[in-house]
Design a protein around this nucleic acid. Structure first.
Lengths: 138, 138
DNA sequence: GTCTCTGCAAAGTGTTTGCATAGGC
DNA sequence: GCCTATGCAAACACTTTGCAGAGAC
């Protein structure tokens, strides 16, 4: 199902701003922050405001079209990939990459047994040095 | 080694405020935020300011006496347990409990192989409903 | 035409900083 | 007595809110 139908099904209007934010997120593996999204869209939509980006992201998150990530910076990052998957951050260049979730199969069940919680989901963040930053400086 | 010696070894002065913040963290499994720490200490140290709590926490984190947690709220939480261990948050009452880290043995190596990053550490957060909140409301 | 969305500015929240004074050593 | 730490207030960064006008349907 496409974003237009999903928005309409949720009683939400389809606006150029909403499409622009979603399409930007869907076309990158970058995990940008609200501000980064705004900076990328501003040249194309010079009337768009940062407040609109925030309001749009809230709508997209609530509609299940986008997920909000918290990689321990002071701002959130956003991801149009809403499937359960984890992230790894480079402590040098701060890029954020995806990790396939099948590496964590069965983990929720294991945790559930050892904690007596009912596990609903998880957010797993790994920190390290990416292949690019491992190369010697020149 | 006790906190007094560790502070001195780092060239830091031992002040009542630093001891109070550290001892509070060391004596609870609560994972309080800076504000919660301030609120607990204020009755005992009425001249202490929130800025001092923040400055003290920064010093303690840098000295390796305390770790900063990011459970996806808009504020950080702090933990005097600096051993590698993960956390689980109740989405109803927002309590944060510890998870023994041996459940995750070998995971960093696995991720390192699949991502080509050098893994330095990880932050694993689980979300669910705690045993207490699972009980029917009365 | 209705009712939600946008965009501006202002307010809010958690955290950090500057600086004079207090206090550890 | 020196030099760092404290505590106040002001600044900061990110995010949210209020509201009038614009725009989707």
């Amino acid at each position: 199902m496409d974003i237009t139908s999903i928005l309409r099904d949720n009683g939400l209007k389809v606006t150029p701003q909403r499409l622009a934010v979603y399409n930007l997120l869907a076309s990158t593996k970058d995990h940008p922050s609200a501000e980064a999204i705004y900076n990328k869209l501003y040249p194309l939509y010079p009337t768009m405001s940062l407040a609109t980006v925030y309001k749009t992201l809230e709508v997209l998150v609530k509609s299940g079209l986008v997920q909000q990530l918290n990689v321990g910076e002071n701002s959130f990052r956003y991801d149009a990939n809403v499937s359960s998957h984890s992230h790894i951050t480079c402590i040098k260049c701060h890029r954020v990459d995806d990790i396939e979730d099948n590496l964590f199969a069965g983990m929720d069940t294991k945790i559930s047994h050892s904690t007596s919680y009912s596990i609903i989901n998880h957010q797993l963040y790994f920190f390290g040095i990416c292949p690019h930053c491992k190369q010697p400086e020149q």
